[in-house]
Write a protein that binds this DNA or RNA. Structure first.
Lengths: 356, 356
DNA sequence: AGGCAGTGCTGGAACGTTAGAGCAACCCCA
DNA sequence: TGGGGTTGCTCTAACGTTCCAGCACTGCCT
């Protein structure tokens, strides 16, 4: 009568069993729809469970079945940097969608600091609180992941990790994508002197995008300059004066949209015209590039689809699937989104009607 | 010798105990730095644990201690809608920061669909896989939360929930903030005929922002129009023609930045000048409003700080703190960010130098 | 009549951890 | 010399679940 006064001690299998008058095992089996339990008993058990508001204690289940029904989304970098990036939102959307479909929880695992970071995801995975992990934005030099993979834990990487050939990964071909962006400025817009604004060069994607730029420029015999940035809008703005100093450049290939925006905003403020004086193309298409004026042409990175596929593969791994060596790495296609900053789309009033 | 061949069966307390030659309990106590274990034994145990790569099995610990060392971040709406919003990123940043500080994991809990949603967070909380929850963006009509709160489970709400007076919540004063925005257009810019673009009116914040707009307008005797939107950029664009038809309006107060942007982009495309013909002010300041041209004046909502405080309060609750009735609700201050769309900041080139 | 295959349940052990009770051994002071 | 306190461990019983082995009972075939 005076039940659930404060923090209603959770109802367990035993409570249900007593109510129905069967054993605990019978209740457990009934709730799993085991064939060896009679239909009538099952019905009575399910009714009682509903009435008492029974919910399986996930810790006990995890302990017994050594299955947590949860996956981790691991972000080794500091949360400031990555969450600030719209990339993460797309990834999270993809991961949760697939996790939901598999009735699994998603645990977000960030490392407070770089040094403690190594041990952070190590602990999560080995503590048995998750069945596997998606690892995103890992620093190039991280060896902890290698160990996890070598120990046979289900791990899928998001991005390209040439130094981890055995790990399952889902990424894009950054080199080829950067070539396409560069060639677009050269071939579609006739630009002959290009500057590339790089990301931090300890990130594989930054390296690859630079290499793609250089390869395409070399192939077509156009002039090249390199300015180093760090993927932030500020670093793009900071690169502005350096680009101004390069009198003859007529095209900018930025390693992401934020830097493109930072540089563009600076140069527009100094009276340079985009795209007339300087054609600009960015990279990522995570939202920013669509809403600026001029809108920024870019290489669309299908982050959500990458996350979806990575998570699908993770559940395959958890399910016990073995991956052939030549199937370890999946590459998603990228797409050139031509907007105003390269000159493909006219400036001015007519942009109201475009659809997604 | 042939250890850890495949999925190295995780090392347990027992493995460490056998290695050192003590009992399992001794190892458990040593790792918790219990005073009744000798210093030398502790040292030997810790060394062995390190060597064997021992990590506490969190399921077993959770089962035994009925403490999961994890909190849930619950997003009842469909993931599409909410993750698409930069709001969530700020919230996640705040929540993970505090969770890290408390050595707790963060579980993201989204409901695949609206109907199934109710049971979703109910299950998460009652299954014992988390110690408490932050609930964000809950629909106004949700009664499941009421039950959780009534059952004494640690729950903190993000936003204002006037129909849940007992629940602990952290929010802003949307009415007052909307009044401030509206008064800014009236007093600082002399606007006399205002249109308000609302959010979905089953959300408390949308209701409050509309009410604040109406109150301020009435107080200053300016004309008002209401156009209903749903917080999306598309609904802002769709409201564009309706606003055009309202010939005499000279100010737009949008319930968020995305709608302000949608409407503004449409109207700019039709030859209307912002801010000259129409002063625009938005709401949120989650990123978009800073990067558009013209940049959008807005009410800054300190989402990350709200999340930080909510999570702090959650851990207080988990720690057993009782909350006095008059301390249940915390209100964070909002701030007017005056940019170009209302006329405060000049248009054109000079915006390169602004800092965060 | 005996065996034998189902059917429908019960009993009990195990998962890895924690914590309270218990117990030797020691030291100190009366 | 013996009682009382401290130190440093061990033993054991949980926590709630799952699952295998067992067991009684029915029905059927030979």
């Amino acid at each position: 009568m005076t039940e659930r006064r404060k923090v209603a001690a959770n109802t367990t299998l035993r409570d249900v069993a007593e109510r129905v008058g069967v054993s605990v095992s019978a209740v457990s089996m009934a709730l799993q729809d085991h064939p060896r339990i009679g239909d009538d008993t099952k019905r009575r058990i399910r009714e009682a469970a509903d009435e008492l508001g029974y919910v399986t204690n996930s810790a006990a289940r995890a302990l017994r079945a050594s299955k947590a029904d949860a996956i981790a989304l691991i972000v080794p970098n500091t949360s400031q940097h990555v969450f600030g990036h719209a990339y993460f939102m797309h990834v999270l959307t993809g991961v949760t969608a697939v996790a939901n479909r598999n009735d699994a929880q998603v645990v977000i695992s960030t490392s407070p600091d770089e040094s403690h970071g190594k041990v952070a995801y190590d602990r999560v995975l080995r503590s048995g609180s998750v069945d596997g992990a998606i690892v995103t934005s890992a620093a190039v030099t991280d060896d902890g992941i290698q160990r996890l993979v070598a120990d046979g834990l289900p791990v899928v990487l998001l991005g390209r990790f040439p130094y981890l050939p055995d790990a399952v990964s889902v990424g894009i071909d950054d080199v080829r994508a950067s070539e396409l962006a560069t060639e677009h400025l050269i071939q579609a817009h006739g630009r002959r002197a290009l500057v590339h604004l790089t990301g931090p060069l300890d990130h594989q994607s930054a390296i690859d995008r630079r290499d793609g730029f250089l390869a395409a420029a070399a192939r077509h015999g156009v002039g090249t300059y390199i300015v180093e940035g760090d993927f932030s809008e500020e670093s793009g703005a900071a690169a502005g004066p350096q680009i101004e100093a390069l009198g003859d450049v007529d095209g900018l290939v930025a390693a992401n949209d934020e830097m493109a925006f930072g540089a563009m905003r600076h140069l527009l403020g100094r009276g340079r015209r985009v795209p007339e004086d300087l054609a600009v193309i960015g990279f990522d298409d995570f939202g920013l590039s669509r809403v600026t004026t001029p809108s920024i042409s870019t290489m669309h990175v299908p982050a959500e689809r990458m996350a979806t596929q990575a998570t699908d593969r993770l559940f395959d791994l958890i399910g016990g699937a073995r991956v052939a060596a030549d199937e370890a790495h999946t590459v998603q296609p990228v797409e050139l989104i031509a907007r105003q900053s390269c000159g493909c789309e006219p400036m001015g009033r007519a942009q109201g009607g475009d659809k997604q």
